[in-house]
Amino acid sequence: MLLTKFKGKEALIPQLKGKVFLVTCHGCKEVNLSGAEHEAELLFNEALASQHINGLLTADYICNPEYLQARFERFADQVREADTILVFSCGVGVQTIADAFPNKRVIAANDTYPLPGFQGVTPLEHDCKQCGQCYLNLTGGICPITACSKSLINGQCGGAKNGKCEVDPNMECGWERIQKKLAQIGRLDALKCPVQLRDYSVDAKSE
């Protein structure tokens, strides 16, 4: 199970560039206790006035790429026009959308926290460790916690060979993927962010 928690308007506004398309997921609704959807609506209504937001898609299980494609069909024009896609979901949903729209700036609106119990129905190729400090906005929508075997959050180690991880030659180096993705979406500036430190004491209840 998981909980999502809104990162807060202050943290997100600087991440939004150009026209913004909003996606909210209520797939794991029974465990989505954070009120993130409500926050999304508020942000949506507020931003409509400034005309920065050009559409809102509310769906369940956006982590399923096939459903996702069908759902996005109706919004093809808006999504094409959008520079940013702001996603209210767990980390898996954000990664699925970042993967589906490789040239868009895909931004996670939430941090994802764990709850004991059933893990959800989705994980396909993407994984979210529910670290409560979602890094996807710094890494082009590729999770450094799950895509890097050392879960490094400050860049590549020296262990990649021919683009593969030192631990598993069948696994692509997560940070090489991140580097390429950031270059592709023109966001290499994200690598100049302050030194990142994990906080293992965080949980959804802490502020």
Binding site: N154, G155, Q156, G158, A160, K161, N162, G163, C173, W175, E176, Q179, A183, L188, L191, K192, V195
Partner: peptide, 16 residues
């Protein structure tokens, strides 16, 4: 390294 761009980016972070 065959990912020299990622190495340079990391080097810059280490300098920072």
């Amino acid at each position: 390294s065959d990912s020299v761009d990622a190495q340079l980016a990391k080097m810059e972070r280490k300098v920072m």
